[in-house]
Design a binder for these strands. Structure first.
Lengths: 138, 138
DNA sequence: CCTTGACCCTCCAGCTACTGGAAGCATCAT
DNA sequence: ATGATGCTTCCAGTAGCTGGAGGGTCAAGG
């Protein structure tokens, strides 16, 4: 299987597969002509990577997960901890984005739109959030 | 005001202020000794940037927002649209992260932890999600 | 045999938004 | 004079690709 077929089979772009090889995450053999040759095992690894990346694991996490996957003597606790840490980072990021979302949504709905220049969005960015009661910067 | 004071006044690291100057977002004068000299206007711009970045706007968005802020003839609709687009991107990102979160949370709670090697997290990554009824890949 | 088109290869550059560090002046307090 | 800051520039690195240049390979058709 050359890289094009591996890409189709794993769902990853060929460019990404080459990049993962540079990163040491896959190590396909080479044909006499220099073309990469992927076996079942490599395709499996690539699909594993595709799924792990799709769940937001970093490449370093993926490296660790592949290592644990290959290690028959692993403790599932190690995998669980890695995933739990990742979950915590996702939750933190969601919280951050939700806070932004609320503020931005408030600004968007406060702005009338239209041709006039007066805009609460710019006012807020220029002076910081204002107190709803006093109208002064918080 | 030199860069250290500007950093303290705006809340941005000095390094970041220099970077913003490279990007053309601020243009402080220079003293005879070559030091950057920030006036009230620059400090205001930097604080504006700090707040906009804190709401997740890209530097290009910030550039556009500063342009609109400086333009007395602006239409507030332009600002509103920019912010609304940003809001849509935030929402998309949150949805993406929530989907990841649900999957990862499911995997974490399915994994017993402990010393044994059997781990549903790795099983899922290796074969893709399985159907709850048939136990076969979806 | 030659060409055409679709593959494949390597290497380099660029993306976002900084951040760290080295080498070298300027300033200020002692 | 000296040592501690603080300022300057420039270079490199971060994560994870992605695009493109320049070139080799291979199978099919004329």
């Amino acid at each position: 299987m050359n890289i094009g077929e591996a890409a189709a089979a794993s769902g990853l772009p060929a460019k990404t597969i080459r990049y993962y090889e540079d990163m040491g995450l896959v190590a396909p053999r080479r044909d006499a002509n220099g073309y990469r040759s992927f076996g079942e095992g490599e395709i499996h690894r690539l699909a594993f990577l595709n799924r792990a990346r799709g769940l937001g694991f970093s490449l370093e996490d993926c490296r660790a997960l592949l290592g644990l996957y290959a290690d028959d003597g692993r403790a599932s606790e190690d995998v669980r901890r890695l995933a739990a840490d990742h979950l915590a980072r996702i939750d933190a990021r969601i919280a951050e984005l939700k806070a932004m979302r609320e503020t931005v949504a408030g600004l968007v709905s406060a702005c009338a739109g239209g041709d006039r220049p007066d805009c609460p969005i710019l006012d807020d960015l220029a002076t910081g959030p204002l107190c709803a009661h006093t109208g002064k910067p918080v």
